[in-house]
Design a protein around this nucleic acid. Structure first.
Length: 973
RNA sequence: GCUGAAGUGGUGGAAUUGGUAGACACGUUGGACUUAAAAUCCAAUGUCCCUUGGGACGUACGGGUUCAAGUCCCGUCUUCAGUACCA
């Protein structure tokens, strides 16, 4: 009987689907375990072999946990709103919903054929109105919330309103905008509704405000900070400019401290936590207020080193700082304006790239030192960023290298306030093991003490206070795009109003084109039916807008991360998905995700926003957990192995002649003495080149499709010729041995590099079990590693060997034979290793372990069911189809997934003897079989008496003999 | 620049608390079977020296600790990732 993997895999995939084998129940006595993959964006290109890597790992873990007696939730879905579908819609007019649906079908087919144990009954799609209804609902909760710093949690905005109406805002300690004016209860109560709403927007956790945003003209939308990489858009690499726009923002900054602290309690990689810590960017210090001489103004700065306050010798403002124009003296006006103009022209990117050049201008104005009252020059310089802190710094050149460089460059005084430190060459930036000097009341104190004291004295003067600053900015939440969640918002007199939850979802309207309007409004501005009727509570035609009962709806849509910030909760809900985002019982049972697997690229986007929304939902009493993902693993990327053909060029133009790579590099390098030389000469002549032109021929490597190349790097020339018209008449110069080799190189897997390997082909040729095993066998999960299809034959022949252990030409070989000691030893060491490996997420080593076990059992001619049946359970998380098939052949009528994981019994591994390595001065020379229970002394005696030992020593007396029982013997001397 | 991770055969990689470096595969070479091919099976395969036996050298590089170092310590180099005038 053959191992007919295609039939077997189809059969079991059908069985699992029909029997709902992997459907999770919300009511179970078993302990729960929630395994989640970052859900995919269904792109038009479908899956390549790199995509399923993480899914295979999580599937192995999910299946293992089922064997271990857990009730496992392992769902899957689609992050189906997004830019590519919309860009495609703009080009073709095809509705994004249609493309998305088609793409999802492809994804589903591809996922199904790999044999994942997903519970598809719980699928979510972020672009389904039934789903985004709840995304809109959460948005409303954010709008209806403010953050109380005293209680460290979000609360209902109505509580804040009642505080305002009873005592005003003078005593509230809550997260809000910077430009808040204080008001009394009377003042509040005297304001009209619009004025009150305007103030409340400054407190809500999602708010509408004119903010400076990252506008990407090519994409026609704004982008969040995490969507910009190196100054260009993450998607497409388009330039981004700063622009002021009225936008919805998320007050994530209110949660900065909790997002930071929460990292302590979750099991994520250090690098990921570190990335989030950097993004949050906490710095502890103080604000200091400097009075400006001859002006009724003061300059606020933030410093992390209040202890160095007496080292201040000048101040620097960002060129954009609002006080610059007020303070600049007449004499300096021209120079200052010229500088401002110059730096405004430089993009943010240029400013960042050019760190070396020191530039700045003196404003002519002076501030006053809060303690010494000495005058301090006020400069402007673009090393100070308007967007961080207060946009101004107190410059302490002796303690900060940038200030030092600036001071040196402009010959500003550099007072030394560190005891016994030489600052003649560079600033002293450390803060440990140094005492403050020349600093009045701070003299002799260390960093900690001096900082405390400085803050205290500043507070006494009313010119400063301790402050913690965060780099984390509020996240812009509006996108000027079509294919995203509509906001449940309409406008009355310019003030946003929420649509009541019972009227959700507000569905995306139809538009005739997916482009912005001529007036520059977002695509929803093209919708004809996009107004809110407050009487019928329905979306109605725009021409009915009367601004009394029928109002304009919001034209922006939500960003990609909205739907993915809470989807893990919706999977928990089975029955009442329309009535709740997840029911109380479901939330209580499943809590949060135990294991989350996905790419590291989401470190500062999805993974931060999800944590933020979960904290908000917890504060408002909707969920019980503080963090969404307990343990998180980033799978590494699978890289492609590109193939290159060597093309001959003359004067930069292709000769349409291609040479085997062996002739270009390596021992067969072609020279005028090579046997191939004459052939090459003929070819060049036929192309009209003269002998003296030959040396001007150069080579270029061009990508060729990897499917034309075999495991030995040989090109299928016919396939290549048929690939593109221009290769039809190409001439190929082969090696001496008649083959044509290509150059291989590892690169990111991508269409443009022609190195994409489609899992469909692998599954058809080798089967899903082979694909699963091979992806794991490639190396550690977290590591980047190249794909090489040739290697899959190893795991495939392993599966064939496994099959043959159970089945031969006549049928089933397995019998009730009593297992031998060796059989049991092989089985139990495999149980032990595989269990350890899975728990350590070391899936690659398990595959080797299976290979060893099958090789050993084959050599032992094992046919015992007591061995071979448990072996199937060990393998089934990795290669579930073959395991199910053989398991049923053994007479079982239930799925192998319901079988308990075999129990490890150490007694089978107890050895009576050990093959000791005998080393001389640490170098192993030979091995010696000795009984396990032999004493140290006896081992030493036996080894020293051995003839090989005597030969090694050549008459020398050993100085020392180290015996580690059960491990090693080392003879020194 | 800073932070983090990594560097082991021709290739992917393995090696528990320091204890036989290179498991398991791929590839390569040779062989068996076959008219032939595929498939399968067997053997060899870190480098160098050498007739077997064996020896020397080997985990990026240079030091060190130790009876013993891929593993621990110090320094250097390289690669990858993140981040960057953050006051």
């Amino acid at each position: 009987m053959q191992y007919n993997f295609n039939d077997i895999e189809a059969k079991w995939q059908k069985y699992w689907a029909e029997n709902q084998t992997f459907k999770a129940s919300n009511t179970s006595d078993k302990p729960k375990y929630y395994v989640l993959d970052m859900f995919p964006y269904p792109s038009g290109a479908g899956l390549h072999v790199g995509h399923p890597l993480g899914y295979i790992a999580s599937d192995i873990y999910a299946r293992y946990q089922r064997h271990k007696g857990f009730n496992v939730l392992h769902p899957q879905g689609y992050d189906s709103f997004g830019l590519p579908a919309e860009q495609y819609a703009i080009q073709t007019g095809q509705h994004p919903a249609i493309t998305t649906e088609t793409n999802i079908k492809t994804y589903r087919r591809q996922l199904d054929q790999i044999g994942f144990s997903f519970d598809w009954s719980r699928e979510v799609r972020t672009s389904n109105p039934e789903y985004y209804k709840w995304t809109q609902w959460i948005f409303i909760q954010l709008f209806e919330s403010y953050y109380c710093n005293d209680d460290n949690k979000a609360k209902d905005i109505s509580e804040l309103i009642s505080i305002f109406s009873s005592e005003g805002n003078t005593n509230v300690n809550v997260a809000c905008d910077d430009d808040i004016e204080t008001f009394s209860a009377e003042a509040w109560n005297g304001k009209n509704s619009e004025a009150q709403q305007e103030i409340l927007l400054k407190y809500r956790l999602t708010y509408l405000a004119e903010t400076e945003v990252n506008w990407c003209p090519a994409l026609g939308t704004v982008l969040a900070n995490d969507e910009i990489v190196n100054g260009v858009s993450e998607r497409g690499g388009h330039p981004v400019v700063r622009k002021k726009m009225t936008q919805w923002s998320m007050r994530i900054s209110a949660y900065a401290e909790r997002l930071l602290q929460g990292l302590e309690n979750i099991d994520w990689t250090d690098s990921l936590k570190e990335t989030q810590r950097n993004w949050i960017g906490k710095s502890v210090g103080a604000t200091v207020s400097f009075n400006v001489k001859e002006h009724d103004e003061n300059i606020e700065v933030f410093t992390t080193r209040p202890d160095t306050i007496f080292g201040v010798s000048f101040m620097t403002l960002a060129p954009e700082h609002e006080l610059v124009s007020k303070l600049t003296t007449v004499a300096q006006k021209e120079a200052v304006n010229a500088y401002i103009e110059k730096s405004a022209k430089r993009s943010e990117r240029d400013r960042m790239a050019d760190v070396k050049t020191i530039s700045g201008v003196f404003t002519g104005a002076y501030a006053e030192h809060p303690f010494t009252k000495e005058p301090i020059q006020i400069w402007i310089g673009d090393y100070v960023l308007a967007s961080y802190g207060t946009g101004a710094v107190m410059a302490v050149p002796c303690g900060d290298q940038r200030d030092y460089d600036f001071a040196t460059h402009f010959e500003i005084e550099i007072p030394n306030i560190f005891e016994g430190v030489d600052i003649s060459n560079e600033a002293f930036t450390g803060k440990d093991n140094v005492k403050i000097a020349n600093s009045d009341f701070l003299n002799g104190m260390n960093y900690k003490k001096a900082s405390k004291r400085a803050i205290y004295d500043l507070e006494q003067l009313g010119q400063g206070e301790g402050k913690t600053n965060y780099r984390l900015r509020d996240a812009v939440f509006s996108r000027q795009r079509y294919w995203g969640e509509p906001f449940p918002v309409y406008y009355v007199n310019g003030m946003p109003q929420m649509i009541a939850a019972q009227h959700l979802p507000i569905k995306l309207p139809e538009v005739e084109k997916y482009l912005p309007t001529e007036e520059g409004e977002p695509p929803l501005g093209r919708a004809d039916v996009w107004a809110w009727d407050t009487e019928s509570n329905t979306v109605v035609s725009n021409d009915k807008i009367n601004n009394t009962t029928i109002h304009q709806l919001e034209l922006n849509t939500m960003p990609g991360w909205a739907g993915s910030s809470w989807y893990f909760f919706h999977y928990m809900e089975e029955a009442n998905r329309d009535g709740v985002f997840a029911s109380e019982d479901a939330l209580k049972y499943w809590e949060n995700v135990d294991l989350y697997i996905g790419g590291a690229e989401h470190a500062t986007g999805h993974l931060l926003y999800s944590r933020f929304w979960v904290k908000l939902l917890k504060d408002r009493g909707f969920v019980n957990v503080e963090e969404p993902f307990k343990k998180l693993i980033n799978q590494g990327m699978i890289l492609g192995t590109s193939a290159f053909v060597v093309e001959a060029l003359y004067e930069g133009k292709s000769l349409n002649v291609y040479e085997s790579y062996n002739l270009i590099e390596g021992p067969n390098y072609i020279t005028s003495e090579s046997p191939k030389w004459n052939e090459l000469r003929e070819i060049y002549r036929s192309k009209g080149l003269e002998e003296e032109d030959f040396s001007k021929v150069t080579n270029r490597l061009i990508h060729c499709d990897v499917s034309f190349v075999n495991a030995s790097d040989e090109l299928d020339i016919d396939a290549f010729k048929n690939w593109r018209a221009e290769f039809k008449d190409a001439i190929f110069l082969r090696d001496q041995d008649g083959v044509f080799k290509v150059k291989r190189e590892v690169e990111k897997m991508s269409k443009s590099k022609y190195n994409v390997v489609n899992p469909d082909q692998i599954v058809a040729d080798y089967g899903a079990d082979s694909l699963r095993l091979y992806e794991m066998f490639l190396g550690p999960l977290e590591q980047y590693k190249p794909w090489n299809t040739a290697g899959i034959s190893g795991v495939h022949s392993f599966l064939k060997k496994l099959w043959k252990l159970y089945v031969d030409d006549t049928g089933l070989k397995v019998n009730d034979a009593e297992p031998t000691k060796d059989n049991l030893k092989t089985l139990h060491k495999t149980i032990k290793k595989v269990q350890e490996d899975i728990e350590n997420f070391s899936f690659n080593t398990s595959v080797s372990t299976f290979m060893i076990a099958v090789n050993e059992l084959g050599a032992q001619k094992c046919t015992s069911k007591d061995i071979l049946e448990p072996l199937l359970v060990l393998i089934s998380p990795y290669a579930p189809h073959i395991a199910e098939e053989l398991y049923s052949k053994l007479g079982n009528t239930v799925s192998i997934s319901t079988t308990a994981f075999p129990t490890f019994d150490a007694s089978h591994l107890v050895e009576s003897s050990k093959n000791y390595p005998i080393s001389f001065n640490g170098k192993m020379r030979f091995t010696l079989e000795l009984p396990m229970d032999m004493s140290k002394e006896d081992i030493e005696k036996t080894v020293l008496a051995h003839e090989k030992t005597i030969a090694q020593l050549e008459g020398r007396t050993p100085k020392k003999v180290i015996v580690v029982p059960g491990k090693i013997v080392n003879i020194v001397g």
